[in-house]
Structure formats: C-alpha cells, structure tokens
Amino acid sequence: MRERGGWRRARRVGFEAACVGAGVVSAALLFAIVAATVWNGFDALSLEFLTSPSAGRPGEGGVLHQILGTIWMTAWAALIVSPLALACALVLELLADRKTARLLRVLLNALNAVPSILFGIFGYYLFVRFFGWGKSWLAGSILLAMMIAPTVTVSWADAMRAISAGYLETARGLGLSTGRVALAVVIPQSVHGLWRGLLLGLARAAGETAPILFTAVALNGVDALPRGIVDNPVLALPYHIFALSQDAYDPAAAAAAWGAAIVLFALVLAFFAASLPLRLRAHEEARR
C-alpha cells in the first residue's frame, strides 16, 4: 500500500518537466537577448560614442544628441503626466463615487490598450498638421505622457489606497475639507506611488518609437536641445536605432545600432532597477 505512485506520478513529473522546460526557455531567451546586445554593441561603446554627436552618414559619430533628446522628451513627459496622474488618482480614490470611479478605470484601461502607433498617427494629424507645429518635441512629450498616464495613475492611486484610514479619519475629524485632506495627508503620503509609476512609465516611454515617429523626431540636422516648440524636432535613441536597423546589413550601421541599443537598454534598465525598491513596497502595501 505504500507503492510510490504509478501513473499519477508519471503525469506529475511530465507536467512539471514541461513547465520547467518552459522556464528554461524563457531564461535562455533573456540570456540570449542580453548577451547578443552586449556582445554586439560592446565594440561600438566608448566614451567618445557616448559624448559626441552623430556625424553626417548614418552609423558615424556618437549618440550624445540622441541621449539628450530622449532625456529631454521623457523629462517633459514626466512633467506633463504628473499633474494629470495626480488628478486622475485623486478622483479615483477621493472624489468620485463608486460608479464614476469604475468608469474612470475603464477609460484608463482603454487608453492603456491603445496601440502606440495610433498615438503616433493621431499625433501627426493633431500636432504636425492641425496645429501646424510641424515636427515638435513637445508633441512627442505630450503623446508619451498620455501613453503612460494610466500606468502612473494606477500606481499613485494604489499608494493612496494604502494610506491608513486612521490618518484620514483624524484629518476629517479636525474638520478639514476633502481638498485640504488631499493636500495635507493624501498627496504627501502617497507620493512614492508617483515615483514608482513614473519610473515604470518612463522606462516604457524612453524606449517607444511609434508615438514619436512622425511627430517629434528627425534623423539629423537638428540641434542637441530644441530652441522652441514649433518645427523643433529632437533626436532620440529609439528612432535612431529604428532608422539604423533598416540599414542593418551595412556593418557600420549595425554596429552603431547595437551601440545605441545598449545605451537605450541601460537607460531602461536604470529606470526599472530604480523602481524595484518602490515596487517591493507596493507588494507590502497590497498585502495589508
């Protein structure tokens, strides 16, 4: 009666082996992707690469201006998205009744599901043509901000939700109006949700090409940082890589693309790594 298993055991072993196999494949893919990127791009990486602008021909020179352009656009995207996310989070958690809050969540989910190329096409029509801005870095920042608004909002709203009821009841008990409660208690105590959301959102925004493709970037002939809004595109890492990828069989272009890819990878990684401690905190909060 103590026999070890039989067919039940065989099924378990088969099932678990398949799952572990899948895990191994995933790990191998990750390793392969990172290894390929690093191995290919390592040669192109040098201090000069990082600190000098591109030269005339694609694949020559460095990516300094692309780095600056990406940072410029994402920084502005962060500035634009923060008040919007604050507004949405406050409404979600503090101001709206259950039904409206649910509708707002539906809106945010819908916005989050929109393919990024549609942001690009819409942005092209709205900013480049309708507003007549031509190519503009600001259009890119606005589009990116809208794209990551759901992510930042949800992160901030979750942080608001985790504020203990005790604080809120005390504040209300003191006679503070909702707005004052928001300013005095809710916002200060939940701001880590903003940082967390921003880091996650910017990790995505920094790497996106589709929204900025037709609206905000150019390949060359542009200053490092824009001087105005209208007719002021910037250079950006993802677009740079995208353009070079189309010439990828030219070794110089490929090498430059890999170098830029490592830089972009590192940038995204940095955002992601910075968000980890904050995400751990989110796990703790969720468990309460």
Binding site: M1, R2, E3, R4, G5, R8
Partner: peptide, 10 residues
C-alpha cells in the same frame, strides 16, 4: 511515516 518507501501523497 518518514521512511523513503512511504509515499507522502498516499
């Protein structure tokens, strides 16, 4: 119970 021959599930 803790011998090797014992199937814990059983």
């Amino acid at each position: 119970v803790y011998s090797r021959e014992t199937d814990p599930d059983r």
